[in-house]
């Protein structure tokens, strides 16, 4: 099933950078779509379009369509605040909010006006369990979130998103700051979560792209060069540029 359909998407920043040029891409539900390519390709910019996180003042022009469940989210009528609850994002550097572990996870719910303790307790526990963090932190939920390790913090960030009950989870190089053990924990976690969510993953290297991809899209300087299902892009790339990048000739 097509969860997100992107049509003729163009994004130009105030400083003149055209960071997305005529991007057409379909993102399937219950699968991991990998967006990869060298830095500056426009991957992060695309993620920020998908939940309208770009600062309005930075953007000079944004044209095209992004359909989420058939609705164009670039429509000014769409409330970006509600959109962000459906399309969650985990950034590359884990950023725990300066609150306790518990309050980090409960943050999004409290914003929605949920203040009943039993509901929050339950939601926090569930989100932490889904992010496979519960067993490590259940006895110190009210410690500052900054106190846990980097890998744990990144799973906390994921739990924070999960608590919102999102439909799409975007991860922008989520393991670039983590050690191999934490990295593989998050990778296998996402392989499980894809049963229930639409996942967009920006990997921090080609190997991870190949490991994670159900679908893969190669971005180069604002252009979507090639898109394919399964691991085909890594085995039989059609475009010379994809081939060169996958083989490590540049990057």
């Amino acid at each position: 099933m097509d969860k997100i359909v992107i049509e003729h998407l163009n994004l130009k920043y105030q400083d003149g950078t055209e960071s997305l040029r005529d991007v057409n891409l379909t993102i399937a539900a219950n699968a991991i779509t990998v967006l990869f390519g060298p830095a500056g390709g426009g991957k992060s910019s695309l993620l920020r379009v998908l939940n309208r996180l770009n600062d309005r003042s930075d953007v000079a022009a944004l044209t095209g369509k992004v359909l989420l469940n058939g609705q164009n989210i670039l429509d000014p009528e769409v409330n970006p605040v509600e959109l962000r609850r459906k399309v969650g994002i985990v950034f590359s550097r884990p950023v725990p909010l300066p609150l306790t572990i518990y309050e980090n996870v409960a943050y999004g719910l409290r914003l929605m006006g949920e203040n009943r303790k039993d509901r929050l307790d339950q939601a926090v526990e569930q989100a932490l369990r889904e992010a496979v963090l519960w067993d490590e932190v259940y006895d110190r939920l009210h410690d500052p979130a900054i106190a846990i390790s980097g890998g744990q913090q990144q799973r906390l960030c994921l739990a924070r998103v999960l608590a919102l009950g999102p439909e799409v989870i975007m991860l922008d190089e989520p393991t670039s700051a983590l050690d191999p053990v934490s990295t593989s924990k998050i990778e296998s976690l996402m392989q499980e979560l894809k049963q229930r969510f639409t996942i967009i993953w920006v990997p921090h290297n080609v190997q991870q792209a190949a490991r994670m991809a159900d679908y893969a899209a190669f971005f180069l300087q604002g252009e979507l060069v090639e898109f394919a299902a399964e691991k085909r892009l890594f085995v039989f790339p059609k475009d010379k540029r994809t081939e060169d990048y996958v083989e490590g000739k540049f990057g």
């Binding site: 939940n51 996180l53 969650g88 950023v95």
Partner: peptide, 27 residues
């Protein structure tokens, strides 16, 4: 106060005022 707190708060569905009131101002 680091910009990243604001971006994270916004990404979790906070309005501008909520981010300011709950995260930035206390810090």
């Amino acid at each position: 106060v680091p910009y990243s707190f604001r971006a994270v708060s916004r990404s979790l569905g906070a309005t501008h005022w909520q981010t300011t009131w709950r995260i930035v101002l206390p810090q």
